[in-house]
Design a protein around this nucleic acid. Structure first.
Lengths: 229, 229, 229, 229
DNA sequence: AATGAATGAGGCTTCATTCAT
DNA sequence: TATGAATGAAGCCTCATTCAT
């Protein structure tokens, strides 16, 4: 049930940690509570948070409307209960490596890192697609969410990725361009693939391996043709 | 008042057409109507469509609540009145060139095209930032919007950009990779810059010219280090 | 429409001030608003504030439930709108006399004062019976109400009545007992009559003049038998 | 644990009856039930019956919500269970004397009666303050309560006090004024003291003996100055 | 006996929309 | 054309009460 694997390897202990997270978040819930969460994820992602009526969630979850409020004091709290744990899990593969404070880059090349990163996060995004949609939709309007995202997710991921990037820059695998720009290029390209893959053309018959190859190659070598330089 | 210029050049006729669009949308409006639109843009982008009360729009627009419904039958119609024209203008630089059916690529190189494209759309996005935010937020939830976007914007832009891309592919300026991938790479990188620039770090002190140079270079040559250079 | 007269006299100017108060509070209301207030007074006094449903008020007032909230943001605000002005009018006869800062006791004897006071406040209580009931019921539970009552009503009335009492004490019309006790005796007896008259036995066939005579006499001479007679 | 003593004497048999009442109401209760009653008294008197949530009572009583409804079918029944016994005990000193049908006035003077009455009921009110507050608050809104109060309390007390009063009227200790008026004067003055003492100024440093002396004297001789003394 | 999860009716309040002026 | 009072459906949430454990 390791719904999330690590960027580098799929070592057993990491899966265990992942599962631990999942367990602490979901295992000790009652069936009704799980059903409420699932229904809420469904409807929030379909209609948006503000446009969703708690009565509809209740109906889809097959519980009384009042039951929702036994578990979550307000509708907003329900939103955060959905979104918070997922945000934590967004960054799991980035933080786990760091836990002993030693920089540990388990990749021989930036290319290897890129590929692992995209494969792993594509898998994660596929599994948590609806919740991610909710996060993206609501971050601009929920200060609590935005703050949590900035402090607990974005900054930690950046910190880690900056370290990795500079590691490979020193090894001469990357051109000498300001790190923020390199990050932007890399992340734009990766996210661009994920969004195209999952959001814009989900029904297209994708060959993920091939597309990821192309994307990695694009990031590393651009799309300029041979003759031009 | 040409708040939007063309990708390639700023020829007068194009400005004229742009203005025509503007006129037809704004010039024959009463001051109250304009004020309503401005207020609605403000509040929609700040709170989201569903979370916005028409009463708040009325208050900010300094009109009576009922006045809004003189001009727009429903709240949703008001949304579409804001978003529709902007979507048309999103694609202005792409469609204008094509009006006589002849393929007309007024750029000597893909690089030139890229630069013009990014500069131009950055300017556009800066000027229409709030509306674009609304479009992005509401497209997933408003079928009418999504349909209009798909048919009137995306497909037309793609059609045009595909033509341009294949034009330069034939000229050997681009590597032989499926056109959709090339489009994805290009658009991801460009949009990645726009979003970072305007949404994620708007307060940072950006040197646009330099960043655009880097971005264009990235797209064409990637970020691979020594081996390629 | 001077629904309230002064303790001492019914001079025209005082009536005018009374009416001014009334006008500023009620005259510029819409019929619906008045109807809401009347219905609320009715139901609040009958069922108590907490046990009253706004829907019932709306029904009795023949307006839509939403209309109530156009005039009063919350149910509690509606309560205060009912109770506040009446509390102001409770003390009207006490404060009016004082407006020039000069102690002005327009009574030749404590007996005259007592009689005027009881007559006047009986009339007031009769007219505002339901609202007074609401005030008494809700003062223990609504801090805002209690505070307003303590600061704007009770302290002002006491200040005035203390002055009057000490005035007659100096003239030898009252025994030399601490003023607070005298106040307590007087007010207990007067209020005791009002409550018995209006609340406990409203349907009894009262001879108000006679009862007030008895009450005043009791206050002044007690009910002791032989020694006084 | 005779928390209530008799007006006249503290004869043992009366205490026994008092305790019997207490036993039948409290001794055969489980600890949980007692805890529920205490919590309910607390919260009802603080927030009012309608504004009190049974969940809050359960929380304060440290029992589950459902437990309350094991003992009391409805919230209203819980109210009556609190208020009923206390109402019975309100009149204990009045009815006990009468049980053999013989008029038995164990006081030599009205003054003695008054003093005993006030002292005794002050003690009672002090001990049952919160419940009395609840009774007063809810009597206007609970027909069951009002009826019980009228039939079981008020009428019995009045009957007894009327007898006592006429007894002393015949002995010439009271002036010849209609008995209801005398009752009203007496009770108003006594209750006025109790309320001022416990409700309006509970934190004031009262000298109860002195105040009761003054009050009794007032009732008997009024507050008229020179002529009477 | 005791629990507390679950219910669903009903409470307060908001809000898009209408309509008489 | 513009207003804003009025509406009432619907939203979020509370709470007395039930019932399986």
């Amino acid at each position: 049930m390791a719904e999330d694997s690590t960027a580098g390897q799929n070592s057993a202990d990491e899966q265990w940690i992942e599962e631990l997270l999942s367990i602490s978040k979901e295992e000790k819930m009652t069936p009704k509570q799980i059903s409420i969460l699932q229904a809420a994820i469904e409807v929030f992602s379909e209609k948006g948070f503000s446009a969703t009526a708690t009565s509809e969630i209740a109906q889809k979850a097959q519980v009384a409307e009042g039951t929702i409020f036994r578990y979550y004091k307000t509708k907003k709290e329900l939103l955060l209960a959905i979104v918070g744990p997922t945000m934590s899990r967004m960054i799991a593969p980035f933080v786990l490596r760091n836990f002993n404070g030693v920089l540990d880059v388990p990749f021989d090349s930036y290319e290897e890192f890129l590929r692992a990163f995209i494969v792993n996060r594509l898998e994660f995004a596929r599994k948590n697609f609806k919740i991610i949609k909710i996060v993206i939709q609501e971050i601009p309007f929920q200060p609590a969410l935005r703050e949590q995202f900035m402090e607990n997710v974005l900054s930690k991921v950046l910190e880690r990725v900056v370290a990795i990037t500079e590691h490979f820059k020193e090894k001469g695998q990357l051109i000498d361009v300001p790190t923020p720009a390199i990050l932007r290029f890399t992340i734009s390209s990766a996210v661009g693939y994920l969004l195209t893959r999952l959001l814009l053309q989900p029904e297209k018959d994708w060959n993920d391996e091939e597309e990821i190859n192309l994307t990695v190659r694009f990031i590393l070598h651009g799309i300029g043709g041979s003759p031009s330089e």
